[in-house]
Amino acid sequence: MEFMKYTFDVEKDDFVRAGEASSNIKRTLRELGIDSAIVRRIAIATYEAEMNIVIHSVGGQVELEIDPNSIKVTARDRGPGIPNIELAMQEGYSTASEKVREMGFGAGMGLPNMKKCTDRFTVESVYGEGTTITMEILLKAGD
């Protein structure tokens, strides 16, 4: 498998198209014959990251990078950024609006779910600038 990279735009508040980036990423991985348990982990983590961009940011992108050793998903937004990452990482903590909670989002499980589903997980955020979440699943021979 050679190095491959795909980028998908994610718009703020677009709940109709929300999930399309994750869907495209999942389809790409399945077409490459990646193990279905790994595809599920990536799909869950990517969906959470994508929904975070839709719900909390002014918009951004999700990027998929595949090489023989790993699958990496980077979710990058253009702001506003997370004031307190430690708090945001706590299961159950959420800053989602009432409207969004009524839709079944905002359970405060997004970031913890992403961390659980991936082998490497980092959040970098500068308040006023934006957030970058990097998630990686390592591949073994046969995956």
Binding site: F15, A18, G19, S23, I44, M103, A107, M109, N113
Partner: peptide
Amino acid sequence: LSWVMSHAQKGDAWITVMTHSNVIA
């Protein structure tokens, strides 16, 4: 939705009162 995302399994019938389009995703 995040709870469903991390717990529901392939092939499940999902019973939910949520009817907006993101449930399809």
